[in-house]
Design a protein around this nucleic acid. Structure first.
Length: 324
DNA sequence: AACAGATTCAACCGCAAAGCA
DNA sequence: ATGCTTTGCGGTTGAATCTGT
């Protein structure tokens, strides 16, 4: 397997393309098509290597290229697909008409990766980071709020309720941080302790406790997005039972994950128990399942409607900023 | 206004798969 | 079957631009 010699040829121009060069390339391709990229530069009168011409055309000059900012829908699609495909930029680009792999890669590296990191996620696995530093802000906030509660026994009822509310919200936020459920998929691998803990929270947050407060119960939101939590009270739920259709489907999806870490990605459904053996090839997945999942990820307006992180679940971080 | 540091993104590099003789 | 060429992909670089001081 030899490397293309074209890039090694001396005297060929490198660096940014001039408008004249662009025009030459466009004119030639419009007339003749690109044909052999290696032969193209000479035929088009360009002092460039074929590789450079191909790149310039596919990433910049192609008429069907969509330029400008990524829409929230596109951003969501990239996130969804990256959770499944990993850094397969060209595969991701296939699902975003008019966007190039290079553009998506750049967008990922400059925006989405940082966004995930800021939110405490590992950008490769899409899982919450488990190291102590990533959860430190949440833990500090909780500790501070606890102090506030302990030291405000003499304050008025409204203040106490306000502090209680903040504490509960902080708890929820921390739990949310730990769990980060994707609303596109069924809840993955929630152990019973966690589900029980979550189910115990509404009792501390009942309408009764809010009394006359106008604010809605913040737990309503989180419950709506935790199917395992919602259905735990009924005997037949998708996560407690061991054999049902949903789980079968879910097991098929698991093989699509990328890399060894991502088999446990929370964005991907996986079998609750027992854990599946490590999967080494995509070939074992049914084409239908693969397509179903990709379709699901690339169709934000249908059954898998909203984003990973519904707005009402992403509680305002200003709560923590306000804490001394 | 000037500078430094951060960010963005077009372009390059090298590898590997596909194609072909 | 083998080896060379072409194409495509993902990672990386660096110049241009933006932002903060």
């Amino acid at each position: 397997m030899g490397r293309s010699p074209c890039c090694d040829e001396i005297g060929l121009k490198k660096g940014p393309w001039t408008p004249e060069e662009d025009q030459k390339l466009i004119n030639y391709i419009h007339k003749h098509g690109h044909g052999s990229w290696r032969a193209l530069p000479k035929l088009a009168g360009l002092n460039r290597c074929g590789k450079s011409c191909r790149l310039r055309w596919t990433n910049y000059l192609r008429p069907d290229i969509k330029r400008g900012k990524f829409t929230p829908e596109e951003e969501q699609t990239i996130l969804n697909l990256h959770a499944i495909l990993g850094n397969k930029w060209s595969a991701i680009a296939n699902h975003l008409p008019g966007r190039t792999d290079n553009e998506i890669k750049n967008f990922w590296n400059t925006h989405l990766k940082k966004k995930l990191i800021q939110m405490g996620f590992d950008p490769m696995t899409h899982r919450p980071r488990t190291d102590i530093f990533s959860s430190l802000p949440h833990l500090i906030a909780l500790a501070n709020l606890k102090d506030l509660v302990d030291n405000n026994n003499n304050s008025c009822w409204e203040e106490q309720q306000s502090i209680r509310l903040q504490t509960e919200v902080a708890k929820l936020q921390y739990l949310q941080y730990l769990l980060q459920p994707p609303n596109n998929y069924p809840m993955p691998n929630l152990d019973m302790d966690t589900l029980n803990l979550l189910n115990s929270l509404p009792s501390a947050f009942s309408t009764k406790d809010y009394g006359d407060l106008d604010s809605p119960n913040p737990f309503d939101g989180i419950r709506d997005h935790l199917p395992g939590l919602k259905t735990l009270e009924t005997p037949a739920n998708n996560f407690v039972t061991s054999d049902n259709q949903v789980q079968d489907q879910v097991c098929e999806y698991t093989v699509l994950s990328h890399g060894e870490n991502s088999s446990t990605s929370p964005w991907l459904p996986s079998s609750p128990s027992p854990p599946p053996p490590p999967v080494t090839t995509i070939a074992t997945a049914t084409a239908t399942s693969a397509q179903q999942l990709v379709d699901c990820c690339t169709t934000p307006t249908t059954t898998c409607t909203s984003g990973f992180w519904p707005d009402h679940l992403l509680l305002d971080d200003s709560l923590f900023n306000d804490i001394p």
